[in-house]
């Protein structure tokens, strides 16, 4: 009786001219992955994010895209590799990056569309009294330090004018027969000095819609990413389009993403794309969609953290490429995790 292997070989050779290697599955390609540092997400993705591919992370503001990308970058810098953060909206906070565990020496930060830095000026306003309330420096006259001449007799000189200066004018004004109106004493107002700076603050604090027309920033960021991919050697490049409205981000030509995908494959760099809406389409190797977050209310007085939820929207490289005959049990395609603020402590 022929064995199963012999039968299989017989069938395969019979069908070879029509279907080559019909019964033996194609060798499985193991694609390298890098962990994200978030346990539940690593479990969901069976190891982490793919190397040498574009990973697109979609979500609204506050959905957890930045903390996810920073956590992944921290894992990479820990292994001694270098990463680049192309910051389209100049929104990265190095303090929080450091708190997450990124080695800032290994992170090249490129800030696009930076205007001149404006610091809130209110901390620079110094309050001071008007000069008339300050002690006037003594006028030097004669030989003595503050006297009025060489002789003590001269010291009373000018005393009468000084006394009259102290008195209010109505006290010494000549009285008339008809009653005189009392002059109303104006209340003195202390104002911060100098008034010019306040005007300049008001001018600078007029609404600036820097997020409104971001074309130049996007253009800069895409050119910079191109250069970084050409230079090679960066293990992860994060292109942060997270604050760019979908109507702008979706206008980036698809050829750009295709080019990035090819370059990433060549240099084995992971490109993380943070967006509000899917842009890279079929060029993305993995698309993660972050659902609106839920705030945690652990403490009544301080903000302690957010619960994020993520689901896999698209995965280009499935673990196996054998198409089963039966429908397989579907695995859960979503995960959630809690991220805490730095001041919340360990929980």
């Amino acid at each position: 009786m022929p064995t199963a292997a012999a039968l299989r070989l017989q069938i395969e050779t019979a069908l070879a001219h029509r279907i080559p290697s019909s019964l033996s599955p194609a060798p499985r390609t193991i694609r390298p992955l890098a962990p994200t540092g978030i346990f539940t997400v690593d479990n969901l993705l069976q190891g982490g994010l793919p190397l040498g591919a574009i990973t697109e992370i979609i979500g609204s503001e506050c959905s957890g895209r930045t903390s996810f990308a920073l956590s992944f970058t921290a894992q990479i810098t820990q292994t001694g590799k270098v990463c680049a953060w192309v910051d389209v909206s100049n929104a990265l906070s190095p303090e929080s990056a450091s708190a997450i565990g990124i080695d800032l020496n290994r992170l090249l930060w490129v800030r696009c569309g930076v205007t001149n830095p404006i610091t809130p000026l209110s901390s620079q306003i110094s309050f001071s009294l008007p000069p008339k309330y300050l002690i006037v420096p003594p006028v030097k006259k004669g030989l003595h330090g503050g006297g009025f001449g060489p002789h003590p007799r001269g010291e009373v000189k000018g005393l009468s004018t000084a006394v009259s200066g102290l008195l209010r004018p109505e006290a010494i004004a000549p009285r008339c027969a008809e009653p005189q109106r009392r002059t109303k004493v104006e209340k003195e107002i202390f104002e911060p000095n100098p008034p010019q700076s306040i005007r300049s603050i008001q001018r600078t604090l007029t609404p600036r819609k820097s997020w409104f027309k971001p074309w130049s920033k996007i253009d800069q960021a895409l050119r910079v990413t191109d250069l970084l991919l050409q230079a090679g050697g960066f293990s992860a490049i994060v292109l942060d389009l997270g604050s760019i409205a979908p109507e702008f981000a979706s206008r980036i030509p698809l050829a750009t993403w295709f080019r990035y995908r090819a370059a990433a494959e060549r240099s084995q760099a992971s490109i993380l794309l943070l967006t509000q809406h899917a842009c890279a389409k079929s060029s993305a190797g993995l698309v993660l969609r972050l659902q609106p977050a839920i705030a945690l209310h652990d403490e009544p007085t301080v903000f302690t953290g957010i619960e994020h939820r993520v689901e896999v929207a698209r995965e280009r490289f499935t673990p196996t490429n054998v198409v089963p005959m039966r429908k397989q049990p579907q695995s859960d395609r979503s995960a959630s995790w809690h991220s805490r603020t730095a001041w919340a402590g360990q929980r």
Binding site: G37, I38, E61, T66, S67, L70, S71, A74, Q75, T77, Q78, G80, V82, S89, N90, A91, L92, S93, E95, S96, A97, S98, A99, I100, G101, I102, D103, L104, N105, R106, V114, T115, P117, I118, P120, L205, T206, P207, R208, S210, G242, S243, G305, I306, W337, H338, S339, R340, T341, A342, Q346, R347
Partner: peptide, 27 residues
């Protein structure tokens, strides 16, 4: 510059909330 020494930073065991700064702050 490419650092020659190994990293000394310690990754936090717990996921942390990241901050996105608005530069300049919006009214």
């Amino acid at each position: 510059t490419i650092p020659s020494e190994s990293s000394t930073e310690v990754t936090s065991t717990q996921p942390r909330v990241a901050i996105r700064q608005l530069r300049p702050p919006e009214n």
